[in-house]
Design a protein around this nucleic acid. Structure first.
Length: 419
DNA sequence: CGTGTTTGACCGGCGC
DNA sequence: GCGCCGGTCAAACACG
């Protein structure tokens, strides 16, 4: 590079001496110099971001360790020695890795995803997806190497609505498990495109005109994995055609591309939060979610499954968003998430990993109840931080950095987001 | 030719 | 039992 530069500069000087095309050469030289300095700047920026990411990763790891310590202590306190390398432990580690900083769980995944992500965010599209292999928790040995096995399992477990409904009625435990799958997260967002680009791969399998809305409702299923049970419905809001209502159902049973992780944790957190409350003995009653104001889970006649709605259409006005159930859109029941002042803790993985409804450990009720408590406590923060960060940060960085910041943000995170 | 979309048919739940 | 409705299937079609 330097050699080439020198050569060009030299030639330029010769030209200056030998000909009278001074102005042209001077312009070229200027251009070259400015490009050079531009590149220097970009390199520096690159380096700075790298350092920042490393720092974030470090902090995340230490926090992760702290959490595990606390968890072990808490668990031992309950007179139940924490199982070394239990399946839960392994699950946790799997989850922690898979959700960490929104990095691509599959290291072999090409950078193509990143590029796609950046270009798509330029269009100001939302990144969505349901990260967290909740189903994985039902497996004794979850993890990438088990996907094929799980796919087999789930091939016979695709949930046609009727069958799911039947199992729901067959027992509490089954109810909670199917509920995990069927918990719906509805996202309202302004979007000009037919669907939101959430980073996942979807295949349309149907379209219907739903009653009360002239706009057709489109049905998509996730195609990233043949057995992935996740589906989404996309429909324009009848009151405001610019608002796109996307309803997600189920959880991905495969690693997601980086571009899909930002909102993945968000919807997972929302679902987790919803399920934390709805899996109590009175699903339709007001739910107490730790310190959250009460909100009502929604069981519509058309869908017997709880639905939680994330309203991203209000971000422009107050820099946050609200969360409510469609049946109770009143200020009292809305949850506003505009605060950035909360103590930042890495909670994204907590929600992905601690959706307790999917825990299969029938014999370990203490563990489960602890997770319930933990989950309820962490959901709010996760939701708050994840969503607020993702939505309010600079669109150009939303998908790349937001996932990292959302879980790991420190006080300096805001600056990074703006960059 | 492979992949994704469209669209009418079909199915099950639910209310009357 | 019947009709309505939401959701899914699958053949036909479009596209690269």
């Amino acid at each position: 590079m330097e050699d080439v530069k020198g050569c060009n500069v030299g030639e330029g000087k010769i030209n200056i001496n030998e000909t009278c095309k001074c102005s042209e050469d001077a312009t070229k030289e200027d251009e070259f110099e400015s490009t050079k300095s531009e590149m220097r700047g970009v390199s520096e920026e690159n380096l700075r971001l790298k350092t920042l990411l490393q720092q974030i990763e470090k902090e995340y790891k230490s926090l992760q360790m702290k959490f595990m310590d606390i968890f072990h202590q808490e668990f031992n306190k309950n007179g139940n020695p924490f199982p070394e390398k239990s399946c839960f432990d392994q699950d946790q580690e799997q989850e922690l890795v898979s959700l960490r900083l929104g990095t691509n769980p599959d290291p072999t995944q090409p950078k193509k995803e990143d590029n796609h992500m950046i270009t798509s965010t330029k269009n100001d599209e939302l990144k969505l997806g349901l990260e967290c292999n909740l189903e994985g928790l039902t497996d004794k040995n979850p993890g990438p190497e088990n996907y094929s096995k799980k796919e087999d399992d789930e091939a016979g477990e695709k949930w046609p609505p009727g069958k799911v409904l039947k199992t729901q009625r067959s027992g509490d435990e089954e109810f909670s498990q199917t509920n995990v799958k069927r918990a719906r997260v509805c996202v309202r967002a302004k979007c000009d495109t037919p669907t939101m680009n959430d980073g996942c791969q979807w295949r349309k399998y149907g379209q219907k005109i739903a009653k009360g809305n002239p706009c057709p409702r489109a049905y998509y299923r996730c195609t990233a994995s043949p057995s992935c049970p996740v589906r989404k419905q996309v429909q324009r809001c009848v009151e405001d055609m610019s608002i796109l209502i996307t309803t997600y159902e189920g959880t991905h049973n495969h690693p997601l591309p980086l571009s899909a992780t930002a909102m993945a944790s968000t919807t997972a957190a929302a679902a987790s939060m919803l399920l934390s409350g709805s899996s109590t003995s009175q699903p339709s009653a007001t739910t107490n979610l730790y310190t959250l104001p009460p909100f009502h889970t929604n069981y519509s006649s058309s869908s017997p499954f709880p639905t939680i709605t994330l309203d991203l259409t209000t971000t422009a006005t107050h820099g946050g968003f609200s969360l409510y159930s469609p049946s109770s859109r009143t200020p009292a029941t809305n949850l506003s998430f505009s605060s950035m002042e909360s103590n930042m803790v890495p909670t994204v993985w907590g929600n992905g990993g601690f959706c307790y409804g999917s825990l299969p450990h029938k014999n370990d009720q203490k563990l489960q109840s602890y997770l319930e408590k933990f989950n309820q406590g962490s959901s709010q923060q996760a939701l708050t931080e994840t969503l607020t960060k993702v939505i309010t940060s600079d669109p150009n960085f939303r998908s790349v950095i937001a996932a990292a910041i959302s879980s790991m943000a420190t006080s300096g995170g805001e600056n990074l987001g703006q960059k």
